[in-house]
Structures are given as C-alpha cells and as structure tokens.
Nucleic acid binder design. Structure first.
Lengths: 168, 168
DNA sequence: CTTTGTGCAAAGCGTTTGCACTATT
DNA sequence: AATAGTGCAAACGCTTTGCACAAAG
C-alpha cells in the first residue's frame, strides 16, 4: 500500500527502539531478538502496512535469520500500538498500521481505485469533533476519519474500460 | 446495540418495501418471501444492527415461519445496501447497518464503554471533507466518521472499579 | 532457574461461496 | 419451463490461542 506524505515529523527525544525498550521494561516484559528485528523493519520506512506486509518483509531476509512467526508479528504489533509507537486503523476489515511516534496527528483520504492512503492534517476536524462531543456530553478520546473517494492520479487516468459503474 | 436518535426523518414517496421492489424489478431480480420478511424486520425499528442481530430477530418468530438462512441474510443486506435502503459501516471489524432511506445524513459518536452509537448531523464535516478533497485533487465520494470516546451516561456512572487504565 | 516469549498448528469469528433444491416469474 | 433464490455446510481471510520448547532476565 502506497501513501503520500505531506506532513513533517515531530521532534522526539528517544528512538522508537529506545521507547519500546522503556515500555517493555516498565511492564516487566523482555526485549527479544524478534522484537528488535520487527521494530527495525517497521521504522525503516514510513508506509502504511498490515500484518501480512510486515510478515513478507521479514521473510525477505532471504536465508539470513530464522523466520519470525505470524503469531509473534501480531503480538508485537499489538504491543507497539499499546506503547504508542504505532497507530492502528481498520480498512475494510483488515488492521492497517502506521507510525504514530514522532509523527503528527492526521487522517486519511482513501482512494477506492488504487487503494492509496493520502494523509492530511486534521486540526480542524479535531476541533469540530470536540465541539460535537461537548454538545452531547461526550468525552472524545480519538477519531478515526477515513474519507473515501478517488485520488487525483486515478481521476487523471480515467481509462474507463467500458465504465464499470460510473454515473449509474 | 442501542442508539440515540436526535435527528428527524426525511419525507419519502415510497415505503422501503416498495423501493426495494422497484430496485429488484429494475435488475431482473425477484421479490421473495424471505426478502419481504427481512425488509419488514429491518424497518420495524430504527436501530443499528449487524447480521447476527438480524438473524436472531428473524429466528424469534418462535415456531412461526421457517428460519431464514445466514447466507440469505448476508445476501439481502448487501442488496438493501446496494438499493440505498441501508447504510453499512465498519465497527471494529464487524459490518453494522442502519437505515439510510428516509433518514438524513449523519455520523456517529461511538462510546467505547457501553458500545452505544450516538448520531449527529455532519453537515460541517461534509464541507470540511470536500475542502480537504479539493486541496488534494481528490473526488470525495463518501465519508465514514466514527468519533471514539465515552458517552455522558458512562461518564456519569464512573464506578471505576479500581480504575483499569485511567490517566495511565 | 524462573518466567516470558516463540513458533507452530489449530481454533475462532464474521463473511462468502458451491451446490442441489425450491420458488418466483 | 426457465431462471433466480434459498439453505446448508464447507471454505475463506484475518486474527487469536493453546501448548511444548527456547531464551531473556
């Protein structure tokens, strides 16, 4: 899954690895070889990914280290989310992750044709949500906004091979 | 799943059943006994529901008619969505449905404690989304905004049995 | 040496599909 | 009669879990 990144980064004191180590230590959990490899892989590029993407990337060590099991990947992704390093969202039933630590709050435009996720800053949305929440005596803890549509690239192409369901 | 409904209704010319019949006819599909029963059940109350809720409600005929199969329920929900009678959204992996026909556009506050969905009118959100879309050359076709948080009722209770993960 | 983590394979969960049978048109 | 729809059960895709073995503290 590709993505466009229009947003900068946020200054942080620790590397993701260090922060994860802190998190683990504070909970009496252990830093393992597998977790190290996963953190390195996850933060080696800034793309949206799901468990399977990561599993494939990890398998691409081609003969290097031993393979990391599917269960370990799922368990570690949960922990990275818990630790505030990753943000998890739900796209058509699958869990999709992105960097949270050191990255500003944002939401997404989702292209229904090419499946691309485009990020945009959501300050105004946050304010609107807070206002709506206040009206309802609701304490807003987070929002997950995914705007569906068709991206500029796909609109430009417009091959329309017999136009599947356009204007219907 | 309970819901609060602060919004009114929209005047429509046909009943949901009539509209569904039109939809089916226009596609060479047939109106069956099962579809009739499902439409009646679905539009007999205005609540958010998933396939399993509906399946249970249909089973509650207690000895009356024959049971309607799981597959038929899923297939009919798809068609009702296609026909514009239902709106489908994704809540934590499951598909959740609500009336679309004869009901104004809105979005939801989702209480993470009691799982309630509270509706709110989203005109301003729509405008913001369109603006954001324009900035990115993106044609917005729809938005699905679910604001997470804690509802007024749950905030009022605040039993906090040893406070699970508050302020952590 | 104790306890947490791992990998595997099996189970789980919501949803979809293949197929023989039934009902609508 | 012709064809679309149904119910069942099996398959599906993603995720979680149980368990014996490995490794971190």
């Amino acid at each position: 899954m590709k993505a466009e990144f229009a947003l900068g980064t946020v200054e942080v004191a620790m590397t993701p690895m260090e922060r994860f180590e802190d998190y683990l230590q504070s909970r009496g959990k252990r830093m393992t070889q597998q977790r190290r490899v996963i953190v390195e892989q996850v933060f080696s590029h800034h793309e949206h990914f799901d468990a399977d993407d990561l599993l494939k990337e990890l398998g691409d060590g081609v003969g290097e280290a031993q393979n990391i099991g599917r269960a370990t990947v799922y368990r570690t992704l949960d922990q990275l989310t818990e630790a505030g390093l990753l943000r998890k969202m739900n796209l058509e039933g699958r869990s999709v992750y992105e960097h949270d630590y050191g990255y500003p709050a944002h939401d997404h435009l989702h292209c229904q044709r090419c499946n691309k996720l485009i990020e945009f800053s959501s300050e105004q949305f946050k304010e609107l949500c807070d206002a709506v929440g206040r009206e309802h005596g609701f304490r807003v803890t987070g929002l997950r906004l995914i705007v569906q549509g068709v991206c500029a690239d796909c609109l430009a192409k417009q091959h329309r091979p017999t136009r599947p369901l356009d204007l219907v």
